[in-house]
Amino acid sequence: MKIRKASALAAAVLALSLTATACGSDDDSGDNGAGSGGGGEEAQTLTIGIKFDQPGLGLKTEDGTFTGFDVDVATYVAKELGVDAENIEFKESPSPERENMLSRGDVDFIVATYSITDERKEKVSFAGPYFLAHQDLLIRADDSVGSVEEINDLTLCSVSGSTSAQNMKENLAPDADLSEFNTYSECLSGLESGVVDALTTDDAILAGYAAQEQYAGKFKLAGLSLSDENYGIGIPKGDTELQADINAALEKMVEDGSWEQFVEKNFGPSGYEYEPAPEITETS
């Protein structure tokens, strides 16, 4: 587990300081011992990947703070790993870059609406899942989509590298005109301006956008449950120790009521009907 501690340089400085104290005269051994040396190990830190542009899940606000269900889950897990909230560095993790960020060591783990798939598990490992979502469409309030067959006639937008985009192209609507961008915010602009007919991704993400004050009354979910998306916490490939520690934290989060609290806090205002906490399946 790559929880960062004091640097080698800091440790060396501390060792020299202790040596110097030990070699001093008896007069130096009074109240000026270890308690006044200012030494000791630095606080543990974690770098956690999240989304910066998903209201209700992972959002960086104008004042630089972070809000959302994934942020709350990440903060809870970090606390169980011994890292306080003030010692977390949140790093933006776009969908196409998540596997690369983990393999390069840019982050310790990722909590970013990261659906567990067999393809992804060839490159990274997961803990969890901690949430079950379903793929849907976000459409303009005066539009409607009544069936999967109708999607083939639409101009769609999704994020490159997402399971939603892949599912549309390969399974659900191969004849639809699908544009892929780096963020869902770009898709949302296209939906608002009429350039695209629908934004497709998980219903939890769509509910967060629809609930934003500036979009009140403009958009709605189509109400199509197109897939099951089990959100997991992405970790470096094969790190079973970290996987076990995070799974234990997730289990505690559900048992002590924190999971329900986080869901109500972040999704309750939108009226989103969420699924119960899923069973943890990623154990090896």
Rank of each mutant, 00 (worst) to 15 (best):
V148I: 15
S193W: 00
K121M: 15
K237C: 03
E229R: 11
Y215V: 14
E180C: 06
A173I: 02
S147M: 04
D143V: 04
G217W: 04
I139Q: 03
E119H: 08
E122A: 14
H134W: 01
F219V: 11
A222Q: 03
K121C: 09
K121R: 15
E213L: 09
E192Q: 13
G232Q: 06
E180A: 10
T117S: 07
A133P: 00
D239K: 08
T201M: 06
T163M: 10
P174A: 03
Q212W: 00
G146K: 12
E150P: 00
M168N: 05
L224Q: 06
P236T: 13
E186T: 15
L199T: 11
K220V: 10
T201Y: 03
L154V: 11
L172H: 01
K220R: 09
D175N: 12
G194Q: 09
V159G: 06
A211I: 07
F181D: 04
G128R: 08
F219H: 08
G234H: 05
T163S: 14
Y231F: 15
L221D: 02
V145N: 08
I151M: 06
A141I: 12
A222F: 00
A127G: 10
Y130E: 06
L188I: 15
E119A: 15
D153L: 03
K237G: 01
E149S: 14
D239R: 09
V145R: 11
A198Y: 03
S162V: 06
S193K: 08
E170N: 12
D175F: 00
T117R: 05
G190Y: 07
Y209H: 14
R120K: 15
C187K: 09
F126L: 12
D118K: 14
A207M: 10
C187R: 07
N230C: 03
D177A: 13
I235W: 04
I235P: 01
I151T: 12
I116S: 02
A176T: 03
D153E: 13
Y130V: 12
I139K: 04
A207G: 11
P236M: 07
N167S: 13
Y184F: 13
S227L: 05
L132H: 09
G238I: 09
E150Q: 15
A141C: 00
D177G: 01
V145A: 10
D228R: 07
D118L: 10
F219Q: 07
P174G: 05
S185C: 01
D239I: 11
L156H: 05
K237R: 13
S227N: 13
A207D: 06
Y215Q: 09
T163H: 10
T200G: 04
K218C: 01
S193L: 13
A216V: 12
N152V: 10
S227I: 05
F181S: 11
D239E: 12
E186F: 01
T155N: 02
E192T: 13
V124G: 02
E213D: 14
E229V: 15
V195F: 09
T155P: 00
D136G: 05
N171I: 05
S179P: 00
A204F: 07
A173W: 01
L172A: 04
D228I: 03
D143P: 00
A127M: 07
T155E: 02
L224Y: 05
L178V: 15
S144A: 14
